[in-house]
Write a protein that binds this DNA or RNA. Sequence first.
DNA 1: CTAAATACCTGATGGC
DNA 2: TGCCATCAGGTATTTA
Length: 275
Amino acid sequence: MPELPEVETVRRELSESLKPGIEIERLEMHRPDLRFKIPIKLPKLLAGARLYQIRRRAKYLLWEIERETVQGTMLSHLGMTGAWRFTQDAPELHDHVSIYFRDGRKLVYSDPRRFGYLDWIEGDRDQHKLLRHLGPEPIDEAAFTAEYLFTRTRKRPGPIKSLLMNQNLVVGVGNIYASEALFRAGLRPLKPARSLRLENCEKLVQSIREVLWAAIDSGGSTIRDYKNVSGGSGEFAQKLMVYDRVGEKCRKCKTAIKMRTLAGRSTYWCPACQS
DNA sequence: CTAAATACCTGATGGC
DNA sequence: TGCCATCAGGTATTTA
């Protein structure tokens, strides 16, 4: 479900509701695993602990926790259908984890497909197994540059679209925003990555940033499942130029949008606007 | 090393 | 109405 804009929206909403230093009463697991086993010690670590900040790295949320002298990070990922929401109701079918705060609120993680993750990190977060190999944040203007993209694409004969979704190259871009960024850049998804010229990289880097920022401004895209913390939808779906629009008219030139499967993922483009 | 396929899981949808 | 196949925004792991 969620790519960078959706995860960032969730992070902002959670940060808004959970002020730094808020005290956690307890965490309850309603099953032992999501995609992976949830650390058995997590409830013990969080009981009576304080939450100081929620950061984002790629599509992961990093919850900074302190309890007496113990400092650590709870890592969470929404997978395809994960969602955090505040509720007072008893756990529903796909509610897997509940966090009770001292102030009486309860935050629940629900995830029908259970592709999400929950883990505990002590020490250097960047060395965590799931974070170690991640590329730069697309929003980082110093790290994610045209030159960087140009260098990293030189030996890549494969389609640029698949490479954009590879989190080792750049993080946060998933199936929706890969197609959308390529539309903005005027590049076909199937174009071999190594055939990109420096000016293409320039444009693409800029397009990725623009589309991600615009999507964050709209609270992300809801196509099917994505819901923000208040249960609302992201409004960017209405502004998508190609994603999920096969056969419909290009919003720029009226040509019918094309679709094909690339590395198992639906890929959309305008045959007239993109080359 | 790359790139594609597979696997993980449930639910919605469409064809018959 | 039921049954089956297909698809869904992610990514670790396996296979080629």
